[in-house]
């Protein structure tokens, strides 16, 4: 199921830079950005760029992928606790599937998620890999 072009474009900045929102009232940060704070209902939220380093909370290996991900299977997805305490979901890359461990230090870089065939748009977003240094 391909995204439409405008639909991909609307989100690309948020996905590639990890833009979340911070509540000016209670200080909680959420990803992706919201219009209403889920914690205190405040509507005063500002955009913030999230850190791209964190630790792996849990992971799974996708062996039966959704359409357009067949080329990359098997691959790992995980929940990452970013340094500022915000959790996000992402694919893991540049790692042997058998070396993945809960708690491992990860860093986010931009990678390809899928292609709309040979002629269509290429979709990018942040993926996480073992911290290099």
């Amino acid at each position: 199921m391909s995204e439409s072009v405008p639909r991909y474009w609307r989100e690309n900045k948020v996905r590639e830079r990890l833009i979340g929102s911070k509540c000016e009232n209670c200080g909680k940060i959420t990803f992706p950005p919201r219009k209403v704070c889920p914690y205190c209902k405040s509507k005063k939220l500002t955009e913030v760029e999230l850190p791209k380093e964190g630790k792996l909370l849990s992971y799974s290996i996708v062996r039966k992928p959704p359409a357009e991900f067949e080329k990359y299977a098997p691959y790992a997805i995980g929940i990452i606790a970013l340094e500022n305490g915000v959790n996000i979901i992402s694919q893991l890359t540049d790692v042997d599937l058998k070396d993945i461990k809960i708690g491992m230090a990860l860093e986010g870089i931009v990678r390809k998620y899928r292609e709309e065939g040979e002629e269509g748009l290429i979709h990018y977003g942040i993926k996480f890999r073992p911290k290099l240094k």
């Binding site: 989100e11 799974s60 290996i61 996708v62 959704p66 997805i77 694919q91």
Partner: peptide, 12 residues
């Protein structure tokens, strides 16, 4: 978007 399957989310 991230390629998660429904099973994989439960697997987390």
């Amino acid at each position: 978007f991230y390629g998660a399957s429904f099973v994989s989310l439960n697997a987390l």
